[in-house]
């Protein structure tokens, strides 16, 4: 599913969080979004998830202009996305299994499919043997892998990760990035926001660098599927 930003601006009061931002991601492409704190990375992701509306310009996902999506259609729109958060956002009163199963329950999958998909996702991130555990009993890296399993369990068309390695050591960060690459390799469009330039530089994917709300560099993808 391709993503097109066309002269997009987002203003909070007197401050421009994003200004005249244009870029295009092809379906199945993987891109890193980087820049300093306050550069507009999170705002861009929020616009993409329709947590905010653009102040100007147009955003289209899969050819569909986001400005045409009514508030009642937002939740359905978000089901095309998998989202990974820096702070994992796992629910501590549910087991790992039930955390990962939540998007499938929302989407209305049968229990049989939920079971098979959750186990497949947990297997993929190497946590199948911990499915009955509480998220609180896991390390930061394991929690992030549960978050990734939850994000990919519905086989989303676009996977978004906001600072997914923010609290992890370099080795775990590399493992997490490896997982994103693996999902991208089966056709999922992946957008990773990170300020860890050292890590990003080791990955051979497209890089979008933001500064003060403007796109200053859009490096070409070496493995993009466009």
């Amino acid at each position: 599913m391709d993503v097109v930003f066309n002269r997009v601006g987002k203003r909070f009061g007197q401050r421009d969080a994003l200004a005249d931002l244009s870029f295009e991601l092809q379906s199945g492409e993987m891109a890193f979004l980087t820049g300093h704190s306050g550069s507009g990375k999170s705002t861009l992701l929020r616009l993409l998830l329709l947590l905010e509306r653009a102040s100007s310009g147009d955003i289209a996902v899969g050819g569909r202009p986001l400005s045409k999506i009514k508030p009642s259609g937002i939740s359905k729109y978000r089901r095309d996305f998998g989202v990974v958060f820096q702070d994992h956002q796992l629910l501590s009163d549910r087991s790992i299994y039930h955390n990962v199963a939540l998007p499938l329950e929302i989407a209305g999958f049968t229990q049989r499919d939920v079971d098979r998909r959750v186990r497949a996702a947990l297997d993929k991130v190497g946590l199948l043997d911990r499915e009955r555990a509480s998220p609180d009993t896991l390390s930061g890296g394991e929690q992030q892998r549960v978050g990734i399993a939850r994000a990919v369990v519905t086989r989303p068309k676009i996977l978004i990760a906001d600072e997914p390695t923010g609290n992890l050591d370099p080795q775990l960060s590399a493992e997490i990035m490896g997982l994103f690459s693996a999902f991208n390799s089966v056709g999922v469009t992946v957008i990773v926001a990170s300020h860890d330039l050292a890590l990003i530089s080791r990955m051979s994917h497209r890089i979008l660098i933001l500064d003060k709300g403007s796109l200053i560099t859009a490096g070409d993808s070496q493995r993009g599927r466009g």
Binding site: I74, K76, R78, V83, Q89, L91, L102, P103, I106, R150
Partner: peptide, 9 residues
């Protein structure tokens, strides 16, 4: 919050 983020209305 999580439910709303992952597509639950």
């Amino acid at each position: 919050v999580v439910i709303k983020l992952i597509g639950g209305g």
